[in-house]
Computed example of a mutant assay.
Amino acid sequence: MDIRSPNDSDLPALLALEEASFRSDRISRRSFRRWLRHRDCVFRIAVDDTKDSTLLGYALVTLRRGTRLARLYSLAVDSAARGRGIAQALLQSVEQAAREAGAIYMRLEVAENNLGAISLYEKLGYSQFGLYEDYYEDHASALRMEKRIRPYQPSGDNRQLPWLPQTTAFTCGPAALMMAMAGLPGGHYQPSPEEEIELWREATTVFMTSGHGGCHPLGLALAGQRRGFRAEVWVNIEGPLFLDGVRDENKKRVMRIAHDSFVRQCGAAGIEVNYSDIDQDELTRRFSAGANILILISTYRMDSMKAPHWVTLSGFDDTCLYVHDPDMGDTSPRALREAPRNPLDCQHLPITRDSFAAMSRFGSSRLRAVVVLESLS
């Protein structure tokens, strides 16, 4: 058996193996072609080097840019070749390649009735950390399993925080705020699509460089406090925010008016605004004390777009900070066919502390903004 990267000549055999291995949720010809050229994946095949390089199996792993997370997207072994340790060899090969690409965690989903695969994953060190109901096209549920492919000594508080996707391209702030509020004690807060838009209306800066306005940290804090939570803001710039790249002077005028209004409202509401950086030690201390935290990042390391984006802190350890990202990426029909992003790809994303320090600054002004939310009970 030889394990190597596939090429275009392997496509017919890959399609035949896919057809024979899965009754639903199959990878299409177009998707296989895309994965053969995609830079953010690890793709390995096992071939029989004694039988004209007959395809025995494949493993495909996706890598989430800007994070240290890898995900086993698909694994298949020819039924005639099972029992030879091919799945284990493939999995160990892609783990090594993912590790070399910088990944710290490997995650996967497996049908809860696939006892053979579950046994293999457990043997190789994977453990269940959740259940995804009605996951497959046939409505079967999937176990969520995870393995740290780089050893560590854990520390910190990795609490259970609900994950919510943003339903528009411009409501990352409201989605992050809804996650934070729904994850605090009390259980009285109920997110909804209507609430997402209402939060955006309350917190928007009105304009951004293009498209709809994003959300101001003071606006998000005000929206959270109006809903019965204690809010606090850390921002390292005292003047109007998000003016970088806005050329229209009338847009700048309106954004300054909105900013000044948020400042006055926070003063009237008694919301503490700290005009300074908040370091990672303080972030993790506040998180451990029970607060949920919204953090503004630049998406450049994730998608090269240099857009401001709100995420919610979901945990930490000595190496990484973990975030819930509300952005499901491009959800157009074509994008979903060619490279669907799974909700699991957006939850508890591990970002190394040095990378996080760079990501949590936006624009030429190096804006840093954090909203700390606490329960009043």
Score class of each variant (00 low, 15 high):
residue 136 Y to H: 13
residue 146 E to H: 12
residue 110 V to H: 02
residue 108 L to E: 07
residue 173 G to A: 02
residue 176 A to R: 06
residue 115 L to H: 06
residue 134 D to Y: 12
residue 164 L to E: 02
residue 75 L to T: 02
residue 170 F to E: 02
residue 117 A to I: 09
residue 117 A to V: 03
residue 144 R to V: 14
residue 113 N to Y: 14
residue 105 Y to I: 12
residue 133 E to N: 03
residue 103 A to C: 14
residue 171 T to P: 12
residue 170 F to G: 07
residue 149 I to Q: 01
residue 128 Q to T: 09
residue 101 A to N: 11
residue 80 A to S: 13
residue 96 Q to E: 01
residue 183 G to V: 03
residue 81 A to F: 05
residue 91 L to D: 04
residue 181 M to W: 09
residue 109 E to Q: 06
residue 159 R to Y: 07
residue 168 T to I: 00
residue 68 R to G: 05
residue 193 P to I: 10
residue 195 E to Q: 15
residue 186 G to K: 05
residue 105 Y to V: 14
residue 173 G to R: 01
residue 178 M to E: 15
residue 130 G to R: 10
residue 174 P to L: 03
residue 143 L to W: 08
residue 151 P to D: 15
residue 101 A to G: 08
residue 117 A to F: 07
residue 146 E to R: 09
residue 190 Q to A: 11
residue 117 A to G: 07
residue 88 Q to R: 11
residue 122 E to H: 14
residue 173 G to M: 04
residue 113 N to A: 15
residue 144 R to W: 07
residue 140 A to V: 10
residue 168 T to D: 11
residue 81 A to D: 13
residue 141 S to H: 08
residue 154 P to N: 11
residue 84 R to P: 06
residue 197 I to W: 05
residue 143 L to F: 15
residue 76 A to T: 01
residue 173 G to D: 10
residue 149 I to N: 08
residue 156 G to F: 04
